[in-house]
């Protein structure tokens, strides 16, 4: 029996726009098992990003509880959140969000710098991560010298360099073509599989959801239904290969 690393209780986020109230996340109760891949699926505006931001503490809920590893995220202050993120969380964004004046290697090193890891160790670890995403030859390149796919690889390396227990990805392949999308997904699956990391991926792309063991369908801020994927690509390399062949 695996434990639930994340527990959401009656989570609610209401945005006020003048007199109008928008319930971006409405009464969500959901658990995430350690080491699993969950996909949040839904149309644009269904509240996927908001839910993800609530879980990662980037936004405060209007109501409800977020308990990660027994800690109440909604009660943390800025400093506690920063330490918490340093410790347990990695992020992959749709728009990569690399720092433009740092090299690929330095971008990957950044979370370790904030965590005060020693110079030698962090360089080794960052280089190792770059190798894992196949960009060791681009270590000293600036983001502007890299393609979209390469930038996203750097961003993935940055998310995993700390070996976080949880990785959040908000539409990580939204800006990439289909072929690169699969490469990226394979990469994340490979990395998270190795260390039994918990992965939460937001997408509106049905194809991507095939990688997840569980698909949470969202609509108007509510959970519409939950689907379990017995044959997730993560577990069946055959399927993955088949898909990649298709694309080629």
């Amino acid at each position: 029996m695996s434990e639930d690393i994340i527990k959401l209780r009656n989570l609610k986020k209401i945005y006020r726009m003048g007199d109008e109230k928008i319930a971006a996340v409405n009464n969500v109760t959901l658990n995430f098992e350690r080491g699993t891949v969950t996909c949040l699926l839904g149309k644009s505006g269904s509240g996927k990003s908001t839910l993800l931001n609530l879980i990662s503490g980037l936004e405060k809920p209007t109501k409800g509880e977020i308990i990660i590893k027994g800690l109440h995220v909604e009660r943390m202050d800025e400093t506690q959140l920063a330490k918490f993120r340093q410790q347990y969380i990695g992020f992959v964004f749709q728009s990569y969000n690399l720092l433009g004046n740092l090299t690929a290697l330095e971008n990957v090193t950044l979370p370790l710098i904030f965590k005060r890891v020693g110079i030698k160790e962090r360089k080794e670890r960052a280089m190792e991560m770059l190798k894992a995403v196949g960009l060791e030859k681009r270590a000293s390149h600036k983001p502007s010298q890299l393609s979209g796919g390469q930038q996203q690889r750097v961003s993935i390396a940055r998310a995993f360099v700390n070996n976080p227990e949880i990785v959040f990805a908000d539409e990580p392949t939204g800006n990439l073509d289909t072929k690169t999308t699969y490469q990226m997904m394979d990469l994340m699956m490979g990395l998270s599989g190795k260390n039994k990391q918990t992965l939460i991926i937001v997408t509106h792309d049905m194809e991507i959801s095939d990688y997840a063991q569980r698909i949470v369908h969202l609509s108007d801020g509510r959970i519409e239904r939950i689907e379990y994927n017995s044959e997730s690509i993560k577990h069946s390399n055959e399927l993955g290969k088949a898909r990649r062949e298709e694309v080629k």
Binding site: S56, L58, E78, T79, A82, K83, R85, Q86, F91, N97, L98, L99, G100, L110, P111, F114, K115, R158, N162
Partner: peptide, 16 residues
Amino acid sequence: TREIGVMKVIGATVSD
């Protein structure tokens, strides 16, 4: 602004 946000998200503290 964006850079500051990114740094915060990946673990920079307020004091950093």
